[in-house]
Design a protein around this nucleic acid. Sequence first.
DNA 1: TTTTAACACGAAAACGTTTTCGTGACATAT
DNA 2: ATATGTCACGAAAACGTTTTCGTGTTAAAA
Lengths: 348, 348
Amino acid sequence: MNRKITLKQIAKELDVSISTVSKALKDSPEISDDTKQKIQAFAKLYNYKPNNIALSLKNRKTNTIGIIIPEIVHHFFSKVIRGVELVANQRGYNVIIGLSNESFSKEVINMEMLANGSIDGFIISISKETQQLQDYHHLTATINQGMPIVMFDRVVSEIECDKVIVNDFNGAKNAVEKLIENGCKSIALITTKDYVSVGKLRTQGYIDALSEHNLTLESNLMLKMDDTLDYEEHLDLLESEITQLFKSNQKIDGVFAVNELYALSAMKVARKLGLSVPEDLQVIGFTDGVLSKHATPGLTTVSQHAQQMGEKAAHLLIDKLESENTDQEEEYQTVVITTDLVERESTK
Amino acid sequence: MNRKITLKQIAKELDVSISTVSKALKDSPEISDDTKQKIQAFAKLYNYKPNNIALSLKNRKTNTIGIIIPEIVHHFFSKVIRGVELVANQRGYNVIIGLSNESFSKEVINMEMLANGSIDGFIISISKETQQLQDYHHLTATINQGMPIVMFDRVVSEIECDKVIVNDFNGAKNAVEKLIENGCKSIALITTKDYVSVGKLRTQGYIDALSEHNLTLESNLMLKMDDTLDYEEHLDLLESEITQLFKSNQKIDGVFAVNELYALSAMKVARKLGLSVPEDLQVIGFTDGVLSKHATPGLTTVSQHAQQMGEKAAHLLIDKLESENTDQEEEYQTVVITTDLVERESTK
DNA sequence: TTTTAACACGAAAACGTTTTCGTGACATAT
DNA sequence: ATATGTCACGAAAACGTTTTCGTGTTAAAA
């Protein structure tokens, strides 16, 4: 077992000082060519690599960014991570993940665990519970310590930091308008309770689209699900509620759902009730998921470009980290990623 | 901006030595109660938390584990990560991720980047390219440095380390036997080329099941896809090959696919060809994914218990890390996670 | 021959901890 | 009055780097 070699060991072995070794390995002009050659050869032979931890301590910079997300088994979030990791790697950073599991306390603990020197900055999408409690002290505390944060997707306007969001409002509005163009007269909405920021915005997009096209807004066409539970867990409840919705509003000919699973459930229920998609009922979802692509019929969705969000968030964070020396007036930007409507078979 | 406070600053502020502060915060009996109270109060006020990097350097232990996977936008791998993160957090560890993106060189670079002190040990599932090249020097080098590795899913027998695998052979065999029990007489296999270890094992399970039940093995019923490309990318090719398979073997009444997408494609093609599932054709896939659950009809699959694999891998690694002091003879174990057949609507 | 400058290297501090060991002050025992 | 012991704390080393500054040696310039 050849444990990693250190400068000190090389120095001892070659009978020079640690400083000399360090300089030689950096090709410093201070060191004679002879000595450099000798040291570099030795270092190569023993596969010397500087210890990251020591470097981090010395430089007060870990070159690691932390990403805190509510859930990883989720197409959207894993795509964001992929984007973050991609950019981080390109720019010489590592990525450390923390899962809040939609819990406020786990989010706080995770952040505190990482904020003590392990990372240089955060990329975070806050948990539903945090959104509900509206307690953001962990975020402000972190920012106050001089550690930059980039929020994405689920952001909160009170917090001053860089943000990457999707144009939820417009994406939803466009989707609903598409349904209207396609001839839908009675469009249902399946959404979450209002405390989920993105759900709220998408709902607003639905409302605006209807009103702009002079369609009356009927509250019994709007199904607001309690999103505290995990999707999968309340699938049965979801389906029965949708069944109820369809049965009591037979004229429904279009559905806009704020996420993939809601849309899929709508299609499933429709099939059960003998409605064919898209002939009798057109459905549009909101997501970046695989389910939409492989569903039958393929689900038309508003694509969020999750990976792009991750990439952008990583760039913003690293830019901030690397400009930090220049103590200019802090300026935060909010980048809006535009959505696309991916048309598949669930719309005409 | 209140930058994090250090022991040194507290010491200076309270006019005591650094050692005294450190001891006081650890409630050492060496320090008088008066002094302790004073220091602890001050530390609490300024929210002192020890710097992780400094601790890591001092203890030569980072309490961080690295996980290297080929891809994160993948239900199986993200579930594994969830399992790893869960256990790691419980046991006081952080998780840092590296994506190889199925590339050998990215896998090597990622590992080298982390092996220089950033982490205490690895959990890894190697890339397809690594499997093809059969070049494992980065793994052996890491192990030689005294850094423990736990391999999961895609393991290689030549490397001596702890492993967590799924019983691919048995899982596949059981699946095929299920098809046989259900009356299938002509069962097709959709698999990958043999260098993918798990694909090979699952193929073997298929072969064994057939032979044990006296069904003749027909090579033209076995479709071996080139798995170098990303699934999504060669979807068209996949579908045309499957179409070919079905057209030239009209007697096929069962399909066993070694992953989710292959199985779904089989169902899709079947539908196009006017075959109804499960009446004319029964299909079983292999995976832990969401697609199977939400497909129509629901896909019967061999479940891999990905999260459990992640949990087990994390436990194995941390156990090894925390017993490392006792320099007993190295003993490695291979944990086999048993698969379950999840029956849905694609089988009778 | 003396001064100056270039050269090649080493000592030491610093990053933030923990921990071992040493020591001065005081109280108790002889 | 001296020896012994306890108490409460500080100095310093160590983890592995980088970097500034100092210094001894040699060669060139005066």
